[in-house]
Each structure stands twice: as C-alpha cells, then as structure tokens.
Amino acid sequence: MPSKRIIVGYGFWIFLLSDIIMFSAFFASYAVLSDSTAGGPTGKQLFDLTNVGIETICLLLSSFTCGLASIGAQRKSSPMFQTAMAATFVLGAIFVSLEIREFAGLAARGAGPAKSAFLTAFFTLVGCHGLHVTAGLMWLLTMMAQVLAKGYRPDILRRVMCFSLFWHALDIIWVALFSVVYLIGAGQ
C-alpha cells in the first residue's frame, strides 16, 4: 500500500496542475488582448522593470527558503523550520506589497483595469497570481502555528508538504508571468 503522504501529495499535484491550466487560460486571454490598448497606454510605457526585478528576486529567494523549511520539517528541527518559514513570509510579503504599490501607481496614472482590454487582461492575470500569493501567505502562517501547537505529526507534515508544493508552483507561474507579460511587454 502506498503511504498516505504519497496519495495526498499526488492529489495536491493534480490540483496544482488544474490551477496552472486556469492560469494558462488567463495567459491566453492576455496574449490575445495585449495589443488592444484602445488608445490607452501600452505595456512599454507602463512597466517598471526594476520593480519587477526586485519582485522576482524576492519570490526566487522565498522558494529557496521554503525548500529549507521543508527540509527543517523533515528533520523535525523547529529552529530551521520556523526561521525559514518566517523568511519565506517576509519575502512573500515584500512581493505582495510591491505588487500592490505597482497596481496603485497604475490606477493613479489613469491606467486602471477599466481603461482598455489590455489592462483588464493584465490586472486579471497578475492580480490572480497576487491573490494566490496572498492566500499562500495566510496558509504559511497557519502552518507555522500548527507546527508550534501540534508538533510534527504526520498529518501536519502532509500539510507542510502541500504548502511547499503550492509555493513552488506559484514561483513557476511567476517565471512565465515576468517573461511573457513584463519582459516581452516592455520590449514591444
């Protein structure tokens, strides 16, 4: 019999793949609508690549610290697990706040989601990823609290594993996002 850990991990893997398929629909709509600026600003005029670079560094480092946290959980080492999770939270929170600042700046310049089909698709795609990261941050805090309160029980460890899969998958989506939306968009 396979262990419950394998079945839970596999099930969550299927969920993540379905989530990635949902994102691919948003990517497809963005790609179709990216030229429909309705006379409004284009990506080249709006995107600040320095900001995107800092966001990318935060998310890549947070994926690394999340990996350290799952090693810490496997070794049942609380200092390693809790420190790495806290670092992951800080990096993820910096990412989300930078993204909120970017969105607020765009809206203040009159480039809100209602301006053009391009901006609607942009805010939907990037905002959906941002919401995933925000939900991931809350899940992260829950896992830190559960490990603190209940210890390294098998069911808690399974949840930690699912969380780290979720976090790494978000990083993969961000790779597609900064390449397709920001870097290609800023070049055109």
Partner: peptide, 29 residues
C-alpha cells in the same frame, strides 16, 4: 501504478539536501 515505491511530488528520494535547493536557486538566478 501506485505502490510503496512511489514518491510524492516535492519529496526528494533518499536524502533531502540543501545543496539541491542551492543549485536550483543558482540556476534560476
């Protein structure tokens, strides 16, 4: 098919190492 020899995604086969994540981070950067 599912068996005791399956691995959950995210689980590293035998020994979990910081080195794997470091190599990944370096390549990603």
């Amino acid at each position: 098919e599912f068996g005791a020899s399956d691995a959950a995604p995210g689980d590293e086969g035998s020994q979990a190492g910081v080195a794997t994540y470091l190599i990944g981070l370096g390549l990603a950067f």
